[in-house]
Write a protein that binds this DNA or RNA. Structure first.
Lengths: 344, 344
DNA sequence: ATAGGAAATGAAACCGATTTCACCCAATTG
DNA sequence: CAATTGGGTGAAATCGGTTTCATTTCCTAT
């Protein structure tokens, strides 16, 4: 089916030694007489031989491979996180399978199966959700079964009923900082736009938002918490709804920076100046947040730390070590020019 | 080293059959008596058994796996392309290894080695370069050795001395369209900004640009072809240089949309209006091009077609079929609001 | 020169699946 | 009723490495 490969047996024969000795040269696990070793190395290089890691993994029961499951690599939040995680994993000797689910349960199942069959040593699951639908519940069962075999670390997300290790940004504090910033800027009517009901990070942000507002004694009109989605289009959509309100918020917090961009676009298009007429803040601090005019005030997710910690926890689990059940990564407020003191 | 897994032998024993029969159930390659089959299936489900694909791949010499080598998943051009390619590969039953080289030769070598050892069935190489340095030349040798074992398809890039299958966007026609657009808009002084010398796609664009300009009888001042890089920062940098010129171009073509965004930002910051004072066009039609004000006129790369064709060619090669040596994917001009008729 | 011990090497089992080949048993046919 | 046919099943080889254990080779000390 495929062209014949050079194997360790071929190398052994041509070097007049046994496969065992060649293996010793390859792994460095035992001493080989220098003269013999050189002879073997020469033959290896002559044929440009590379050991078949499938065979090795089969024996060792470890593939030095981890899988990343994520909704969409094309979203800057995920691509940045994956890039950091992958780079760090490589340093630790792991290569990574990429699994873009596109939020499709069928794809997710397919990928989970495949990762198990491919004997990945561990799985990083980015952006989980709280059960909202029946298929989610069924999917949670699937994940649980996988977790019996393979360690899984959730990043910025979780699923109800799934007791997993999690590494996450401190979204509560992030939201708190944003609200405080806006309140200090004299805003009293603050909204929250975008996100998706049932996605754990959205739910967490919304709940935190409501709590903090309540503690400040501020009322949140239900018209001010709308929108459904994580991209620019959904930001545009929700902003158009905002325009029709008889009483508009003077500032809005967006579920993420892309939503903020969409919101700013539509508001600007309809003659409202950001930040002069309305303040808009985002979340994530994606690469673009600093470049999109007027420069988006946002909460920075520490991608490096998030990625590395997730890998570290996963590798600890792989090696049978104990690991923190939940690691919370701090955030920082990034002040730019999309919000302003409210003078009424 | 790892917790014991259920194997086909365990299933066989518990079902009172031989492993061969279990295998027949798993693969569906031969008939098994319905009663026996049901018994086996029950045992499989009871233990939630999944066959070890390493063992299977070892035997079949085919891992149903392909590797993506690319500079940086965080760049929207690549993330989109990878997402399309990966989705299509999944449809065809392949999972994908992600290899972000970050333009680091050491990483590239590490990854190439690893992909060969992991017995990938094929490799998609995104964004190649023409040899410019000694390390590149050495790297080209490495790629060639890999290609003796594993089929490789280059997308939008190539390496001198490497005779490979390639799938690429018709960048020549794309550039031609842009130049013609600008010329029709009465521009005579046109520049080309950004890109990296030695990267094949940049070299191709620049050469095409010069040729087309020459054919139109237009002169390109060497000051108008500057810049080094593919991101927003490099666009900002090159735009600042542009400001100092005594004679500025009235329109510029940027190596890609990110560069265009950087250019627009700096020009705007220094009081030049785009497109009123200067026209700016990009390339790629990334997700953001339509949203970044004033909306960037650009050349659309057909990501779906590019990704699918690349995978199709690769799969053909994997299956020992003949495949087009070079496939050129057409482009389309996307008109937005970053360029305008020049009235002098 | 030779015994003794250390160092280097080889034979064979093993990882977990698939597949060929041979065999068995039941059903069909002369 | 014996012979033929064929569907269903099992034994064993195989993929390409690693590792244990036994054996051989080498070196050193007497």
């Amino acid at each position: 089916m495929k062209k014949e490969n050079v194997t360790i047996y071929d190398i052994a024969k041509e070097s007049n030694v046994s496969p065992a000795t060649v293996s010793r040269v390859l792994t460095g696990n035992a001493k080989v007489r220098p003269k013999t070793m050189q002879r073997i190395i020469d033959v290896i290089e002559k044929h440009n031989f590379r050991p078949n890691s499938l065979a090795r993994s089969l024996l060792h029961k470890s593939s030095k491979t981890i899988g990343f499951i994520l909704p969409d690599i094309n979203h800057p939040f995920f691509s940045t996180l994956v890039q950091k995680g992958e780079a760090y994993a490589l340093e630790l000797g792991y290569t990574t399978f990429l699994c873009n689910t596109m939020n499709n349960s069928e794809n997710e199942s397919k990928y989970l199966q495949s990762l198990v069959e491919k004997q990945v040593d561990g799985i990083i699951y980015l952006g989980g959700r709280i059960n909202a639908t029946d298929t989610d519940e069924q999917y949670a069962e699937e994940i649980k079964k996988v977790m019996e075999r393979v360690p899984v670390v959730f990043v910025n997300g979780q699923m109800t009923g799934v007791d997993a290790h999690i590494v996450r940004t401190n979204e509560e504090i992030g939201i708190e900082k944003l609200v405080e910033l806006l309140v200090n800027l004299n805003h009293k009517k603050i909204g929250f736009l975008g996100g998706v009901e049932g996605i754990s990070s959205t739910d967490l942000k919304k709940n935190t938002f409501l709590n903090v507002m309540k503690n400040k004694g501020l009322v949140v009109n239900s018209d001010w918490m709308i929108g459904d989605g994580f991209n620019i289009e959904s930001g545009e959509e929700v902003a158009s709804k905002l325009l029709y309100l008889k009483e508009r918020p003077t500032a809005v917090i967006c579920a993420n920076d892309l939503v903020a961009i969409g919101v700013i676009r539509v508001l600007t298009k309809f003659g409202l100046k950001v930040p002069d007429d309305i303040s808009v803040v985002g979340f994530d601090d994606i690469y673009l947040a600093q470049y999109f005019p007027p420069g988006i005030t946002t909460v920075n997710q520490n991608y490096d730390q998030l990625g590395q910690t997730a890998i570290n926890v996963l590798v600890d689990l792989i090696n049978g070590k104990e690991a923190e059940k939940e690691t919370v990564v701090p955030t920082s407020l990034i002040l730019r020019d999309s919000c302003k003191f409210y003078t009424k």
